[in-house]
């Protein structure tokens, strides 16, 4: 069996101490939460951190809270808890849709929301879903806390704006009157997305007042389709518009070929799934389950 190379192990007992440890160990340290992205990479020896800072003990990061007009999701919330959360299901069906198709039940029992975002894997579903929702991330470092708009969070594949000694502590999403959905094509249940798309629509008097479109696994800049969002804003929430938004989204992403599919197929799926997600969101806005 593949096994990781040796490392120092530290168990953080508080956020502050985790940051202290990160500061002390420097760039060769990695935070480990659920470990379901990091440990396989370490087993393959693609990652060989000198130290792991285990934040599984930080119960204060494992809460889902309604805080004023925002939903606050702790970075250590497990996928299974996000999926099971009634408040998430009620206000953010896009997250519930996404969580249903992230890996499998056992991985969801262990993997965390914060870990998924910090991994910045181009195929990670939550990055697109939270980007569609325009979530705000709360990071804590030696100098205290700062907030980062999720669309400013990702620098590229496996790269975020977090500093070495900074820890993602919370994800905040505004609770607004919007409808949302997430649609994914996978080769098999539990596989990473071939392509997936998330859609968020705010509709007022038959007009789209705000739109969010997240794209997974197609090389979309910051996981979103901004031109498609621009197109939708101010338009009518109808099938024709959704199809055009899908077409625009498919043009502004940059998929690459791999064993999940060739470029033309992925581009086609980007359009198809964007359209489907938008339709599903609009149906939900009408009170229909989709």
């Amino acid at each position: 069996m593949q096994v990781p190379a040796a490392f120092q192990y530290e168990r953080a007992t508080s956020v502050e101490q985790a940051i202290e440890l990160l500061t002390r160990y420097g760039p060769e340290a990695r935070v480990v939460a659920g470990g379901h992205s990091l440990l396989p990479m370490m087993k393959l020896r693609l990652a060989q951190p000198e130290a792991l800072i285990d934040i599984n003990g930080l119960g204060e990061l494992a809460l889902i809270r309604v805080d004023g007009h925002e939903l606050a999701i702790g970075a250590m919330v497990r996928h299974a808890d996000l999926l099971a959360s009634a408040v998430v299901g009620e206000h953010f069906p896009i997250l519930r849709d996404a969580e249903r198709v992230i890996a499998d039940p056992l991985v969801r029992n262990r993997g965390t929301v914060g870990g998924s975002l910090c991994q910045a894997d181009p195929s990670e579903d939550l990055s697109a879903a939270f980007s569609a929702l325009r979530a705000t991330l709360v990071a804590q470092g030696p100098g205290g806390r700062r907030t980062i708009g999720i669309r400013d969070f990702f620098l590229g594949p496996y790269e975020t704006v977090l500093d070495e000694a900074e820890l993602l502590v919370e994800i905040r999403v505004p609770i607004r009157s919007h409808a949302s959905a997430y649609r994914k094509v996978e080769r098999r249940v539990g596989d990473w997305a071939v392509v997936a798309a998330g859609a968020v629509l705010e509709i007022s008097d038959g007009v789209v007042t705000e739109a969010g479109i997240g794209l997974t696994a197609v090389g979309a800049r910051r996981f979103v389709a901004e031109r498609a969002e621009d197109f939708l804003r101010g338009g009518r929430p109808d099938d024709e518009g959704f199809a055009e938004a899908g077409r625009i989204a498919s043009q502004e992403c940059r998929p690459t070929a791999d064993q999940r599919g060739p470029v033309d197929y992925k581009r086609h799926l980007a359009a198809e799934l964007t359209t489907r997600a938008l339709r599903a969101a609009a149906a939900r806005a009408e009170g229909q389950e989709a």
């Binding site: 192990y9 056992l106 262990r110 539990g190």
Partner: peptide
């Protein structure tokens, strides 16, 4: 790679894949 699940055990009452837990 935590795909097959033959290593499943309960950790604090919840099944997890023990090949991907230290």
């Amino acid at each position: 790679t935590s795909n097959c699940g033959v290593c499943a055990v309960w950790l604090d009452g919840t099944p997890v894949k023990s090949c991907t837990v230290l």
